[in-house]
Design a binder for these strands. Structure first.
Lengths: 228, 228
DNA sequence: TGACTATTCAATAATTCGATTGAACAATTG
DNA sequence: CAATTGTTCAATCGAATTATTGAATAGTCA
C-alpha cells in the first residue's frame, strides 16, 4: 500500500526537509548569517560564532550537504561562502517570519538592548527610501572585509573600532544613517550612540546588505586589490 | 566566559531555529503545503498526508508551537490553518530555494512525471502574465473547498474528479490554463492530459495560490454560504 | 625535505526526535 | 445519560543529532 504517488510526494518533501534540517540548528543559522555578510574562513567563522573549529567545520559541512554554502580552498585556508544569492533571500524570509510570529524575539531583544536603544522607532521603509535617494550620509560600520564583500551603494566604510578616531571625516549637519549586519547586530547601535554623544545627527538602519539584496536592489562591491 | 553579548546571540538564533526545526521534518512540510491551500481538519490532513491521526496531531502541535499554524475548534472538528500569510511566503521561499539548489528535486520529478509531461516547458513568467491579463480561461482543478478558501481571480472551479463530465462548459477555441496546488501536485497535469485528448488547447501552470499570493497579487475567496 | 598549519575525520556519549500504540479527554448525538 | 466521534496525551523504542576529543590529512612555507 505504497502508491507511486505517495513515493513521489515523500521524495519531494524529503528534499525540502533538507533545507529545513540545515536550518534547524541555532549555530548553523548563526554561521549562515555571518556568511550573508561575505565569505569567511572556518577559523574566522568559528571565532565569531563561539564554536570550536572542529565543530564549526562539522556544521559547515551540514550546510554544504544541503547546498546552502560552497567551500573553496584559498591558499592555506578554506573559504566558505553562500552558494547563491537565493540563500540570503531565504535567510531573510526565515528571519522575517521569526520576527513576525515569535514574540519571544522582541522580548529577547528588548531585554538586551533595553534602555540603550532609546532610539525612537524609525519608519524602516521611509528610512530605506532616503538612503536609496542619497538624502543622507550612509555609514557601514562592519569590518572592512565585509564592506568590501558588498555594501550599500554610496556607503562609507567606517568600522566601529575606528569610528572614534575618524569622526572628523563625518558631516556635522547632514544626517547620518549607520547600518551593520542586520537587526540583531549591535555595531550600528553603538555607532549611533557614540555619534549622538558627539553631536552628530545619527539614526540606525536595521536592514543589512542581505535585506538590501533581497529587495532586488543593487549592492556595491570593492574588488580586492591584490598587492604585488 | 559567557558574555551578555553571547547570551543574546544564542537566544536570538535559538528563536530563529524554532522555525527551522519546525520545517525540518518532511511530513510537517507536507502538512504546511496542504494548509497553504486552505484550512483543514486533523483528519483531513492525516488522510492526505498518509499519517495516522495521532501522528498528524503531533506534528501539527509542533507547527503550532513554532507559531506557524493556528487551531480552532469548529463543532466536532479542530480546524487548522496557517497562522499568517507570511508563513505561506516562507514556504514558497523554502520550496524555491530547494528547487534552485537541490538538483535531486528535478530528478525525482522527472522520474515520476517522466514522459507523461511531454508538455513543453512553458515560460512561467509569460504564462503568469497572460493569466493575470485574462487572456486565457483559467481552471482551478483542486477540490471545491480549496477553491473557496482562495483562488486566482477569474478562475473556474472544476475539480479534477468532475472534469470529464463538465467538459462542455469549457471553450474549444480559447486557450485553457489549469493549475492546482503547486509544482509538485499532479492534478493539473492530469487535467491538461485529458483536455488535450479531448481536443482542447490546454497548458499547465505550475504556480498555485501560495505563489500567487507571495507575489503580492490579489486572491479571490468565496464566502461559504451557510445553509439554513 | 621537514616542520607547521588549517581543516576534516572518527569515535564517543548525551540529547533530541519521530513513529507507534493505547488510553484519556471533550464535545456531540441518539 | 450513554454511546459515538474527533482529537490529544503519555509512554516507549529506535534512529538521528550534537558537542567533544584526539588523531589524520593535505596543503604551505622555510
Amino acid at each position: 500500500m505504497l502508491t507511486p504517488h505517495r513515493r513521489f510526494k515523500d521524495a519531494i518533501y524529503e528534499q525540502l526537509a533538507r533545507i529545513g534540517k540545515a536550518s534547524s540548528a541555532p549555530k548553523r543559522l548563526e554561521l549562515l548569517d555571518l556568511l550573508c555578510q561575505g565569505p569567511r574562513t572556518v577559523e574566522a567563522l568559528a571565532n565569531e560564532s563561539a564554536l570550536s573549529v572542529a565543530n564549526a567545520s562539522q556544521h559547515l559541512q551540514v550546510l554544504r550537504a544541503a547546498r546552502l554554502v560552497d567551500a573553496e580552498k584559498k591558499g592555506l585556508y578554506v573559504e566558505y561562502r553562500l552558494a547563491d544569492e537565493e540563500v540570503g533571500h531565504f535567510f531573510v524570509a526565515l528571519r522575517g517570519l521569526a520576527q513576525a510570529r515569535l514574540t519571544e524575539i522582541e522580548s529577547v531583544r528588548r531585554a538586551y538592548l533595553a534602555e540603550r536603544e532609546g532610539m525612537e522607532p524609525v519608519q524602516a521603509d521611509e528610512l530605506l527610501r532616503r538612503v536609496r535617494a542619497g538624502e543622507v550620509t550612509v555609514l557601514d560600520v562592519r569590518p572592512v572585509e565585509e564592506y568590501r564583500a558588498g555594501h550599500i551603494p554610496g556607503a562609507l566604510s567606517v568600522p566601529i573600532s575606528e569610528l572614534r578616531s575618524r569622526l572628523r571625516e563625518l558631516p556635522k549637519n547632514r544626517e547620518i544613517v549607520a547600518y551593520c549586519r542586520g537587526p540583531y547586530c549591535v555595531m550600528a547601535i553603538e555607532a549611533v550612540e557614540l555619534l549622538r554623544k558627539k553631536g552628530f545627527r545619527a539614526k540606525r538602519m536595521e536592514a543589512g546588505v542581505v535585506d538590501w539584496r533581497a529587495r532586488g536592489w543593487r549592492v556595491e562591491t570593492t574588488s580586492q586589490a591584490a598587492p604585488a
